[in-house]
Design a protein around this nucleic acid. Structure first.
Length: 344
DNA sequence: CTTATTTGACCCAT
DNA sequence: ATGGGTCAAATAAG
């Protein structure tokens, strides 16, 4: 079918196209709200990152394209190990851990039902396995990016319920996302088409303002946090805070320059929340989650992001004509989260 | 060797 | 028809 270079080219072109759209968006919406600006910068950085990764790690992409793009779903996929012609693979020997940065987050799903699953992190995952882990009470679930076949995205994650607290999940991300999130594309398309969805924006904005004015986060005993945590109004820029950021699965190396350097403004949260609905899987769509990550380093190649997830029930079916996601987003304004309880 | 991870086939839900 | 979960087997890592 298509050569490795071809698949690479396609994705590169796609990303380039998105970037172009972003530029157009900026031109068209010269005097637009900050939201649009953040949207464009976000998309632009992610896109640039993806292109850079493809260009830089040619051999790694080669493998991805060879395994997942070139071999169409219907075509039999030769075993990478039995295929002697896979020189790239043979030379490297190591199949999995090589060049794969990993970072771990601890996710707490507070409050709810038996099925409390870790929050949707802005990416579409497909579960491909589950294994009882020795010494662990709960099995470990293995997930890969849904766009693995279509876009050659190699990101994977492992989700395991913590022994101590069933409400806690340890999520380990492997690799970085090279896929283009549907929601981002939709947002860009809508923006370019001149449909910034004003009603949604206004609605979500007010919701987030409510949130920012009433939410309190306690971080006593949390060494990485020597700063105010009252999330009120202007403190958005002080606390990393986002809703299902589409780039949350990026490699730590890239995150340093993108995810956590991105100003966590209400606009960013708005973007994230607006982009969430199409990405929420059926399994998690009955709950909404609020991410509040604190980043600190534990090892050389491993970052632990302590993530607190407040699960907010979305009891009411969508009100007529209202956004099903935003309007189901209800929580107690005086809701208090004690992050310190998640650290020994 | 044991254990962890990934694959592929199969099944089920939508 | 399509996409996602489950399971056993294959494979790699330690």
């Amino acid at each position: 079918m298509e050569s490795n270079g071809g698949g690479r080219l396609v994705v590169t072109q796609q990303l380039s196209h998105i970037k172009e759209l972003v530029k157009q968006l900026e031109v068209h919406l010269g005097g637009s709200p900050d939201l649009c600006k953040h949207l464009t910068s976000e998309i632009s950085s992610v896109t640039e990152l993806s292109i850079g990764m493809i260009v830089r790690s040619g051999h790694r992409w080669k493998r991805a394209a060879g395994d997942h793009l070139d071999s169409s779903p219907s075509a039999p996929t030769p075993s990478p190990l039995s295929d002697v012609s896979d020189l790239t693979f043979k030379t490297t020997k190591k199949r999995r851990t090589m060049e794969k940065k990993k970072h771990q987050i601890r996710v707490s799903s507070v409050g709810g039902t038996e099925n409390n699953l870790p929050a949707d992190d802005g990416h579409n995952w497909r579960k491909y396995g589950q294994k009882e882990i020795l010494g662990a009470k709960h099995p470990r679930g293995y997930y890969r990016c849904t766009h693995r076949n279509t876009q050659g995205c190699l990101a994977t994650k492992q989700v395991q319920r913590a022994d101590e607290d069933p409400a806690l999940f340890d999520v380990i991300y492997h690799g970085e996302h090279t896929c283009v999130q549907k929601a981002v594309a939709v947002a860009v398309a809508a923006a370019v088409a001149g449909k910034p969805q004003p009603e949604r924006n206004a609605n979500a904005q007010s919701r987030l303002e409510d949130l920012s004015s009433g939410l309190t986060v306690k971080t006593e005993g949390l060494q990485a946090a020597e700063r105010p945590h009252q999330l009120q109004g202007s403190s958005w820029n002080d606390v990393p805070f986002f809703l299902s950021s589409p780039v949350s699965g990026l490699a730590p190396l890239e995150q340093e320059h993108n995810l956590f350097s991105t100003p966590s403004t209400p606009e960013n949260c708005l973007i994230a929340s607006l982009s969430s609905p199409p990405m929420v899987s059926p399994a998690t769509s009955d709950s909404n989650y609020l991410f509040m990550p604190e980043l600190f380093h534990v090892g050389s190649d491993k970052e632990v992001v302590s993530t607190l997830v407040a699960v907010m029930s979305a009891p009411a079916p969508a009100i007529d004509g209202a956004d099903p996601f935003i309007d189901g987003f209800e929580f107690d304004p005086s809701f208090t989260i004690d992050i310190s309880s998640y650290f020994p």
